[in-house]
Nucleic acid binder design. Structure first.
Lengths: 155, 155
DNA sequence: ATGTCAGGTTCGTCAAGTGAACCCAGGAGT
DNA sequence: ACTCCTGGGTTCACTTGACGAACCTGACAT
């Protein structure tokens, strides 16, 4: 299939998939980020919307902040005391394609009806989806059209 | 940010992100699939390459087969006894963008050097990457350029 | 019949997730 | 000054899941 890389030959320990999962692969992490992409910023809102145990939410937010995916910023609503909220950083925003990929797969294979949520281009209103493309501009149809190569020779 | 959908208004219980994570969100599942995309098919190879406990691997493979993401197919190498191997189905192959998304993020933010693995277009050799595009063909630059809409009104 | 080996299952232990209860700081009301 | 409320947590007892080592099983090969 995709076996251009001799299968046992490359260093799994520095694999970016594993690395990313090490950061956002724990239970709830990606759901917290989903809510963040919907604009949720406050502890109590995450908790209410996700029905996540407080202790777990506390831990996940701390991890995401530690990783630089969320930032814990103080703010003050008028007439209220100072609070802080959790905002996506650029690093966090760049996880958007991951969420979209999960969503698209779910829409295709798990929906018992039409997709519950559709993404539209802000500018033109057309539906948005993820595509695999090469830099020459060709659409890449799937894993079989891809050849993985080790960037650095073993050494 | 992305708050075109009033934030508390849509039904999280049927969210495709949550659904997909329910299927492939357990520890190891996506790493098993990563190996499957590299052409790994046999129990012992998954186990050796991932250093995953056998009991966990057994459970994850069973789940993935149950979900129709992998198929457990018998095969017989010449002079050997019948064995079975785990092959990606179409449903499984369609998780490729998810893996690529995780990989790209890791390459950007976690690598302490160049990306450990690069994906090239089989046909032209150019590097491959994921893009968010609308059906009108515009590149979508990020979450801010996307407006989520509920597909079905409440009811 | 005996051994080997892929492909598992079982078991005791340890880490992680869970919900309920509790805590704490900062205003607001009195 | 003192009490109440509320957001944002922590603590605790319990259950679930991950872990590694040991063990089992059903072909075949000898």
């Amino acid at each position: 299939m995709l076996g251009g890389v001799s299968e046992a030959s490359w260093d799994r320990s520095r694999c970016s998939v594993a690395g990313t999962l090490g950061v956002v692969g724990e239970k709830w992490s990606l759901l917290v980020l989903r809510e963040a992409f919907f604009g949720v910023r406050r502890f109590a809102d995450f908790q209410r919307l996700l029905r996540i145990p407080k202790a777990v939410l506390s831990d996940r937010l701390a991890t995401l902040v530690e990783q630089g995916i969320l930032a814990r910023v103080p703010y003050q609503a008028e007439g209220e005391r100072q609070r802080h909220e959790y905002r996506l950083t650029t690093k966090g925003r760049d996880l958007y394609p991951t969420l979209v990929a999960l969503m698209q797969w779910g829409d295709t294979y798990l929906a018992d009806g039409p997709a519950p949520l559709e993404l539209r281009h802000q500018d033109c209103g057309a539906p948005v989806h993820l595509e695999l493309r090469c830099e020459a501009g060709h659409a890449v149809e799937g894993p079989r059209a891809v050849r993985p190569v080790r960037a650095t020779p073993v050494g």
